[in-house]
Structure formats: C-alpha cells, structure tokens
C-alpha cells in the first residue's frame, strides 16, 4: 500500500501483543489532512490499543508511524503531543479537583515556556504568557460551551460536559490531529447533536480528527472515511458507504449466516 500524498498520519504494520493476546496485528492506517476518520469495530477489536500505541502510552512491538513526516512511535506521550497529536480518553481523565478553567490552562503547558525563574520573578514575559494562557483557555471554553462553568471543579460537571472539557483541554495543546476515544459515550441525544456540531466546526476550521465511536449513526454522518478493526486486524477501509456494504464488516458486527447455523 502506497502512502497517500495528503496523509497527515501514516501508520504501517503496527503490532502489539499483551502476553498471548495479539491486540494489534499488522495494522496500517492513513489519515488524510482535514478529514474526520472513524475507527470502528466490535468491542475488543483493538481500537483503543491502536490509540494508545499511536499516542505513546503503549510501546508497539513493531511497525512505524509518522505524523506530518515526524516519527511518532517510540516517542514519549508528551513528545507526541508536542508534535501535534492530542487525544481524549475513553474513561475520562480530567484533573478532577481542579477547576474547568485550570484544566484547559494546563492544556497550554506544552505550547508555553515559563520556567521556575520566570514564575518566581514574575517577569513581564511570564505575566504576558499567563494572560495569554488564560485568554486562550477562556476562548476554548466559550467555543465548547463551558464558559459558564469556568470555576466549577471538573468532577462536578455533568458527564456530557466532562467529555466536552476533555476536548477543550486537548484543543488547548494546538493539535494538528485530534484523536477522540468514544466522545459520545454516555451522552443523550441533545448532547450528541451539539458534539456533532462542534466536531464539524473543528473540521471546517482545518483540524483533522480521528474518532473511535460506537454510535454508528453519528459515525456515518460525521466521518469522511472509516477504518474497521476486528480482533486486532484491519478488515476494511473506505467511505462510510463502502464500509457499510462490506460483507466482512457486516459479518464482524452481525456474524455470518454460516456461524449462526453452526453455533
């Protein structure tokens, strides 16, 4: 498979096993600039494992991946974030006892520079940067509709708002690729609708998104292209329409006639 000229993220032949369990088997993935790329598959297919490998939380057994031409596999999570790949977590990992605003401000850490000396002396530069961090964080809160909760502790937000806060925090790192692990999980219909609007807005602003999602309705509406995993292998790739009609995908989700007879 040759690399697409517009590819922002290129992952080739990634394998990862945990003891005897092969979580990922020679998975390759191309994410094109400006698209919303869906990563779908039944539970346990390896979607989150692929996420964790690409974002540096897991070390791949083999394979390589680049973001914007820069190697990302083998780097630390914070370095990968620095290169422009930000992510959210399936089971929310907010800074629970800090305020909503602080959560987003921490997201600016990677793009700012004040060190101990600057902080201790409160230099003009440090103050300016601090101001900038706060303003930027507030803009992101406004964009994600969380500004009214700015001073609330993160853990007191509703579930849907917590998901949005994680997105706001990830956006604060100025990513080129935003990877969302089941952003709509646990959301009601209204919340999902506004999430969809937000993600489309982000794409229109030029951000590329990688999306793990179980809500097929949402996936089909949002994604430009899909990659389907099953048992750690890629079984299909293409537009939502192509994937929907792919017999292997249908088999993965619904089982095959043959299996039903024998089981």
């Amino acid at each position: 498979m040759s690399a697409h000229p517009d590819a922002l993220l290129l992952a080739r032949n990634i394998s990862k096993s945990f003891g005897g369990v092969q979580a990922l088997h020679n998975v390759s993935l191309d994410i094109l600039r400006g698209e919303i790329h869906g990563l779908i598959g039944p539970n346990g297919a390896g979607k989150t494992s692929l996420f964790n490998t690409l974002t540096g939380l897991y070390e791949a057994d083999q394979g390589h991946a680049t973001l914007n031409g820069e190697r990302i596999l083998g780097r630390k999570p914070n370095e990968i974030c620095q290169l422009g790949l930000a992510r959210t977590f399936q089971n929310l990992r907010l800074f629970q006892n800090l305020s909503v605003l602080e959560n987003v401000m921490i997201g600016r850490h990677v793009r700012t520079h004040t060190g101990v000396v600057g902080a201790l002396l409160r230099t003009a530069r440090a103050k300016r940067e601090e101001q900038e961090i706060a303003e930027r964080a507030q803009r992101l809160l406004a964009k994600t509709g969380l500004l009214k909760h700015a001073n609330t502790l993160a853990k007191h937000l509703s579930y849907g708002d917590q998901r949005r806060l994680e997105i706001a925090r990830a956006l604060a790192t100025d990513p080129v690729l935003l990877a969302l692990d089941e952003p709509a999980a646990g959301m009601n219909a209204t919340e999902t609708e506004s999430l969809k609007a937000l993600l489309l807005q982000l794409r229109d602003e030029g951000l590329t998104l990688l999306l793990i999602e179980h809500d097929m309705h949402l996936v089909m509406q949002l994604c430009n292209r899909l990659t389907v995993l099953e048992y750690g292998r890629k079984i299909a790739e293409g537009s939502p329409h192509e994937v929907q009609n792919n017999p292997r995908v249908i088999a993965a989700y619904l089982g095959t006639a043959h299996e039903e007879v024998t089981s």
Partner: peptide, 28 residues
C-alpha cells in the same frame, strides 16, 4: 508564585492524573 504558574499547574496535573498529564504534553 510557583503554585500560580505554569509549573504549579503542571504539578497539580501530575497530582491529579499522571497519565493525562503526560498525554497533554507535560514532561512528567
């Protein structure tokens, strides 16, 4: 001053959730 700075917030982020802190770019 330290608590109220970029560094102080990074400390608090590590206290709250080290994995999330790494994932959003803090060199823990």
């Amino acid at each position: 001053r330290l608590q109220d700075s970029r560094i102080g917030r990074a400390w608090e982020a590590i206290r709250e959730d080290e994995i999330a802190a790494r994932a959003i770019g803090i060199n823990t």
